[in-house]
Structures are given as C-alpha cells and as structure tokens.
C-alpha cells in the first residue's frame, strides 16, 4: 500500500471520471483506483436531492446487503460523523465505543472490511449529500503514512466523483461549469508559456500566494488533478492559447 504513483493509468482513470455516463462507469473507476492506491476498498455513495440513494465501490455485495438488512445506517459511526458535516474524517477519530458499534465493526471486518478509513463528506447543490471513503487494513503507523501522503488527493478525488455523479442525476438540467475569470486565464497562460510561479506572480503584479489561489480555483473548475494537468486541459479546450 502507499506505493501509488500518479502515473498514466491513474490519469486515465481520472480522465474517465469526466466522461462517466452510467453508474457502471463509476463502479469500474472505483475498482481501478482502489487497485492503483493499493487499498482494500474505495466507495462512493450519495443521496440525491430527491432523497434517493446510490452507491458504487468495492465493498463485497454480501456486506452491502447485510448493512441494509441490519439497518446499520443508524449506528455506523462514519455516517454519524459525516452527515451534515464538511470536514474529512479519519475513522480513528470516530467514536467506536458501545456494544452495538463494536458488533457492527466486528461484522464489517468479518465481511472483509479494514479497520482504517478516511471519509470525505460532500454537500452538493439542493440538499445532495455524498460520502467518499477509502478503507484499508494495516497498522496505525502505515495508515498514518498513507493518509498524510494521499489525503489531499483523496479530498480532490471525492469532489471529482461527486461532479461525475451529479451529471447522472435524472432530470437534471445541465449546468455550465463555472467559467474561468480573466485573471485565472492569465495565470494559466503564463504557466503554459513556461513561467515559474514567482515569474508569473510578478508578471501579474500579485503575490505568489494569490497566484496559488487563482491556480487552485482554476484547477478545481477544470476538474484537473494538478497544475500541469490544469494547464493541459485549458489548452485542450482552447480556453487558453499560447
């Protein structure tokens, strides 16, 4: 675990998130990314604005069925810790005490789930709610290393999944992505021209921190994983020209 290097295959899986058309597409992406991160499970589920639930991920079907049959939603500390919240949660920080919760965890482990987890809650538009989770079995020290290395990527990934899922909502009216402002376009253009951050900030008469925020906002709007990817995507789409 933790040997994940953001290579061509990962970029590929992330690029596929952009063109997701069915739940099956999302499902196969969770499987690919689970393998690339070398973790036991990756799960994304959401409740849409009409209260309907959807899910995809690598938990065994027997566990999903068991979870629903037992009504575990009511006692699952992850749900309790994430519902109506917007901060990411390491499962370590949740309250796993109490008999019902301990039995729940035992049952989960018997079904092949790990005891480590990192969950990112998302509040979407119109009451949409989603949860993205990576689950694994390893020592606390190994998990700490993994989560320190990847938590930022996992948070971004959670939002990419949500973006893809929102496109699947039935009867949804397509909403244009937020257009980039002239400042964001200028910043990306300078980076595309080979300026480094300091030079680009200088050319725009802004601080490097401000530049970072402009680029980070542009990255998010473009659905890109990093700055290089954002520049490439902006060029592909013809919104910047160098």
């Amino acid at each position: 675990m933790g040997q994940f290097i953001r290579g061509a295959s990962a970029e590929n899986a992330l690029a596929r998130l952009e063109s997701v058309e069915t739940l099956a597409d999302l499902q196969s992406i969770t499987e690919a990314l689970r393998d690339q991160y070398g973790v036991d499970h990756m799960v994304y589920h959401w409740v849409n604005s009409d209260g309907e639930q959807f899910g995809c991920g690598t938990y065994p079907q027997a566990w999903v069925t068991r979870y629903l049959d037992q009504g575990y939603l009511r006692i699952d500390p992850v749900i309790k810790g994430c519902y109506q919240r917007f901060h990411p949660v390491d499962w370590k920080r949740l309250d796993w005490s109490g008999k019902a919760v301990r039995m729940f965890l035992q049952d989960a482990r018997a079904h092949g789930l790990g005891h480590q987890g990192y969950s990112v809650p998302i509040r979407g538009p119109n009451g949409q709610f989603a949860l993205f989770t990576v689950n694994h079995s390893c020592t606390d020290a190994e998990w700490e290393t993994f989560s320190q290395m990847h938590r930022r990527d996992l948070i971004m990934l959670a939002h990419d999944f949500n973006h893809a899922a929102l496109r699947l909502e039935p009867g949804r009216t397509p909403r244009e992505a937020t257009p980039l402002s002239p400042r964001e376009l200028e910043a990306l253009t300078l980076l595309a021209l080979g300026y480094n951050r300091a030079q680009a900030a200088n050319a725009l008469s802004i601080s490097e921190h401000t530049l970072r925020v402009y680029i980070e906002s542009a990255r998010h709007k473009l659905g890109a994983q990093n700055t290089t990817h954002a520049v490439a995507r902006a060029m592909q789409r013809g919104i910047i020209v160098v």
């Binding site: 917007f86 509040r123 930022r152 971004m156 402002s181 400042r183 964001e184 802004i206 925020v213 980070e216």
Partner: peptide
C-alpha cells in the same frame, strides 16, 4: 467557516475584490 464549494460571502458579494475570480476549491 464554510466550504468555498457552496455559497460564500466572498464569491457572492466581493468578486470585485478578487480580480473577478470565484474562489472555489475543496482545499480552501
């Protein structure tokens, strides 16, 4: 605190102070 992916004061009312950039990121 509020996430910048939802409604925020800066994006709703102060866009003229951010160079017109809507500041949106799960990391901000």
């Amino acid at each position: 605190f509020l996430p910048t992916l939802g409604p925020t004061m800066v994006n709703d009312h102060f866009g003229h102070l951010t160079g017109g950039v809507r500041i949106e990121s799960p990391l901000i």
